[in-house]
Design a protein around this nucleic acid. Structure first.
Lengths: 161, 161
DNA sequence: TCAATATAGTTGTGCAAACAACTCTTGTCC
DNA sequence: GGACAAGAGTTGTTTGCACAACTATATTGA
């Protein structure tokens, strides 16, 4: 049996909804700090990692800049400068196609793919450290509840159904 | 009955742990953007709101700077400048007691209390918009799972058991 | 065909977060 | 009782995030 404490410590929160939100915030903050121990030494942020990951999935097809922005896990209004940094580190390439010069197509470089390879194992260990103490049933339950929680706040056709 | 989809879309994630973490991140990001619609127009951030809230709970007793930092929901290495801003807006006061001049004691002002009063109702509505679509059972379940998820990553004696 | 509109990114600016190095004060222990 | 360490904040600096205004390119429809 899973063993989540049932006590809600009434009084410390204005409402159950607020209690959920603050717990979500706190939990995200704790787990994020663990992930940063992996990304920091590699010289990238988790946002940047997610760009590289997305590009690797589509590789060798390039992906337009704003398509990347829309598929990010957290909002990325600053996608241009983020890609600037990745390009400066030679992890991605930009191409402006002559048939539609509005777009900028992004693709991951060999260096980018290599970096992903280096990160894979430490990152797997990190995820295990973050949440390995929960059993599969609770993990699956959590995924479902989180999805339900944000469902009304998702835009149209995003990748995060 | 609650109706969380059971499909985990295998293949999009490296592990169930990673899937949980990315869902946590995404969900936090969506809900946060809703909260910012409340705090933005009031001229404070949600971190600053939490400082004021904490001080209000202890009012009229003051609270030392680093005690505030340790009780924040997300880490606050920049507590000094955050308090600078709140002091500049006359929402808090600082006192350095002569019997121990290492500490700086912080207390909320009448203006700070008044701001909390103005925010209370819009914030309640915000929390309802964020999570009001979930039933009480799912909300309670979520609180428990989130607490379990971060439990091994909490320090000693913090307020976020 | 050309002005209006829509699309795709970029840049300017200001604010917030992170980490480390620093100052000031008090407690401790030969 | 004076060096040393610990405690409590502050400041410097760099980097990241957010919003809005802007440029450049393509489409469309009178």
């Amino acid at each position: 049996m899973s063993s989540h404490s049932k006590k809600s410590q009434a009084g410390r929160f204005d409402s159950l909804e607020q209690e959920v939100y603050l717990n979500l915030w706190r939990t995200y903050d704790r787990l994020r700090s663990i992930e940063e121990e992996v990304f920091g030494p590699m010289g990238i942020t988790s946002q940047q990692y997610n760009v590289l990951r997305l590009l690797a999935v589509h590789h060798p097809e390039p992906v337009p800049t704003l398509t990347i922005a829309n598929r990010m896990i957290s909002r990325a209004p600053d996608i241009t400068r983020m890609l600037d940094k990745l390009e400066a580190s030679s992890l991605i390439q930009r191409v402006r196609p002559s048939e539609n010069r509005r777009m900028v197509l992004i693709s991951i470089t060999a260096g980018g793919l290599s970096l992903l390879g280096e990160i894979a194992e430490p990152l797997r260990q990190c995820h295990s450290k973050q949440l390995g103490h929960l059993n599969k049933k609770d993990l699956a339950l959590l995924v479902g509840l989180l999805r339900d929680a944000r469902k009304p706040h998702e835009q149209e056709k995003n990748t995060w159904s």
